[in-house]
Structures are given as C-alpha cells and as structure tokens.
C-alpha cells in the first residue's frame, strides 16, 4: 500500500476546494508545468507519482457523502486539469482521450475557459494548447451532453481484490 504522505494531502488540501471560489484550483493547474520543470528536489514529481498511485489503487478515502468511484473520478479530473491529457500510469479505468472537453467537462474548463479572452483565465490559452483543445469547443461543451461514467460492472470486485492485496483500506461506511 502506498501511504498518503503529508506532502500529498497538503497539496490536495491547499488547492482543490471550490466551495467558495475556484481561484486556487485554477492557479494549481496553471502552476503545474512550471513546478514540474523547476523541480530540483523532485518533490513535485513525487506528488505526481503518488497522485497516480492513489488513482490506480483507489486508495484515496471517499469524499464526504460520496462513493469510492465518484471520488476516483474526481481525482482523475484533477489529474487531467493539472498534469495533462496522458492518463495516470496504471489507471485501470482510463478516460477515453476524446471524452475530455467534449463529453467530459472538468472544473478548470467550467471556471477558466470561455470563448472570449476577456472572460477567460490568463493561463487558459496555454492550458488548452497543452491539451489540444479549442476554447470555443470547450465552452460549448459546458452546456453540451455530458454524462458521468457509470461505476464499472466489475468495480466492487476490483476494490475487493485491491483491499485484499493490501493496496487500499476499506472505507468506513459513513464515508
């Protein structure tokens, strides 16, 4: 089992809550390329690797009032927003690449992308280019057909095997 390190928890706890504002979330996404490029001590790469491992093993505790599957999906969307279009290594349920920005819309897209520069985050053009997306397409997708991915049929069994292998802890029932 990959333990959730303090560095990883701090990363999640600092940047990704959008209850009051999406400013921190957007900033985290726009900072990431520079952090990876200037990561002399490797600490941000370590956070990224741990991020991937927790998605792979479903080893993040379920968010309040949420299920393990919905929680995994939340982390997958953050991964895309922060680290880009390559699915995290080892993801057992990778999101089809063509879904992003068409049938799957992320928090960054909803808040930072607009079809006009005046209403768009300053870092959005670069963010979109890194993912091969066009602002207009993403903006239209916000109001377009988007369905959440259903929990895969084998998911409960998959979780059971991961738990038995000691890769994750069984979540308490109250989440």
């Amino acid at each position: 089992m990959i333990p959730r390190t303090n560095a990883f928890s701090r990363y999640v706890g600092t940047w990704f809550d959008t209850t009051d504002s999406a400013d921190m979330y957007i900033e985290a996404c726009e900072r990431a390329p520079k952090r990876l490029a200037e990561d002399a001590d490797g600490s941000f790469h370590a956070i990224r690797d741990e991020f991937a491992a927790h998605i792979r093993d479903s080893s993040n505790p379920p968010l309040r009032g949420s299920t393990q599957w919905a929680t995994d999906e939340w982390y997958r969307s953050i991964w895309y927003d922060v680290f880009g279009p390559e699915a995290p290594p080892g993801d057992p349920y990778p999101v089809p690449a063509e879904d992003w920005g068409s049938t799957r819309v992320t928090t960054y897209m909803i808040y930072a992308v607009n079809d006009e520069e005046e209403a768009m985050s300053d870092g959005a053009p670069e963010w979109l280019a890194a993912r091969g997306l066009a602002a207009k397409d993403v903006y239209d997708a916000i109001g377009n057909a988007t369905l959440r991915r259903p929990e895969p049929a084998d998911y409960a069994e998959h979780l059971r095997r991961l738990t038995e292998a000691g890769l994750r802890e069984e979540a308490s029932s109250d989440g």
Binding site: T19, D20, S21, A22, D23, I26, E116, A119, M120, S121
Partner: peptide
C-alpha cells in the same frame, strides 16, 4: 453575456 473573471463556487458567505 456575463463577462467576468470572478469565480465563486456554489456558496457565497
């Protein structure tokens, strides 16, 4: 069209 870069979530307190 509403033009803004203020990005509140679902709660304003």
């Amino acid at each position: 069209k509403v033009i803004s870069k203020h990005r509140p979530g679902a709660e304003a307190s």
